[in-house]
Amino acid sequence: MLLTSIKRLKSMGIIGMNQRNFGLVSRYNPRRLYPLVDDKLKTKQLAQQAGITVPKLLGTLHYQHDVKQLKNILNPYQEFVIKPVKGSGGKGILVITEQAHNLYYKPSGDAVRLTHIERHVSNILSGLHSLGGKPDSVMIESLIHIDPVFANYSYEGVPDLRVIVLKGYPIMAMLRLATHASDGRANLHQGAVGVGIDIDTGEALHAVQYGDPVYHHPDTRKPFHDLTVPHWNKLLTLAAACYEITGLGYLGVDIVLDRDHGPMIIELNARPGLSIQVANFAGLAPRVAAVEALIQVDPDPRVRVEFSKKNFAAVRNLFRSRRKISQSVQRSLSLTVS
C-alpha cells in the first residue's frame, strides 16, 4: 500500500519536500541571494531597474517613532496596502479601500480607526510577521485593481498568479483565488483555491481546494472551465526575466493583473511550495529534468518562454471537454432563442 503509492507519485513526477530542499532550493539558490527576495523593498527596486512593472510605493516606515507620521503619509490616498517588508505567505497585509471621516474601510466593509492601523504598523516593525521575529520595516503600496477577467473568481482578495521559474524557464503556473474559507487570503492550506494554468495557452486546467478537485469557485459558483489568463505571453516573459534580476535558479514569482497597469510582480519567493503540483495535477520532476538537460540557458527571456510553451504545454486539459460542452449548450440555447 505504502510502496505502491510511493511508486505512483514517483511515476507522476511529484517532487516531495526533501527533494525540493535538496535538489532545487539548496542547489540553485545560493544563500547570499536570499535577501534580494526576502526583502520586498529590494525586490521592488531590482524589478524597477529592470523595467518590470510593480505596484507603486507610497511610503515606507522603518522605526517605531515613524508611526506618528503615519497619518500624514496616508492622508493623500484613498486606497492603499500596508505590508511587512520581510513578511511571507501574505502575512500581515492590510488592505484599505476607502478613507472617510477619519475611518478606514477594509475590503470586507469593516471600518477601522487610525489607532488600529498604527498598532498594526507597530507590530510589523517589531517583527511580528517577519521570519525569526527580526525587526522589520513597513511598506505602503498603491492598491491593485482586480482585472475584470477575474471579477467573479475571487472572494475579497486579488487573485495572484504563481509561476515557478527554473533557471529562467517558467515550468509551472497556478492561479490562487481567495475564498471565504481562506479569509480573503491566497494561501492554499488555508482554503484558497489553486487553479493549474496551462503554460502554453494560459487556460485553466484543473482546480483544487484543500487538495480535492473543484469545478467552480466555492463562493461565487463561477465555473473554471472558461477561465483564461489574459496577457499570458507578457506575464510569462516577466516571470522569466526575474531569473536575471535575482540570480536565483529556483524561483516562485507572484504576479497580479491590474485593471489599468497589466501584469505586475508583487513578490518573489526563493522557497516556493509544492501545492502547485496538486493544482496542476502534474509533477514538477519531468519539467525540471527537461530544463536541466539544456546545455545552455538562453539569455533572452522571450526565447525561454517559447521553449517552455512548446515543451510544457498540457497534454490533456480536463476542463477543455467541459468548455466544449458548455459552448455547445450556449449555441443550442441561442438557437432556440432565435
Binding site: S5, I6, L9, V208, G211, Q277
Partner: peptide, 22 residues
Amino acid sequence: GQYTGYRLTELYRFHTMGKRHA
C-alpha cells in the same frame, strides 16, 4: 540529510493525485 524521497505525510498530502491517476 541526503534523503530526497517522499515524507510519510506527503503520501497523504498528494493522495488525491495518486488515486485519480490510477
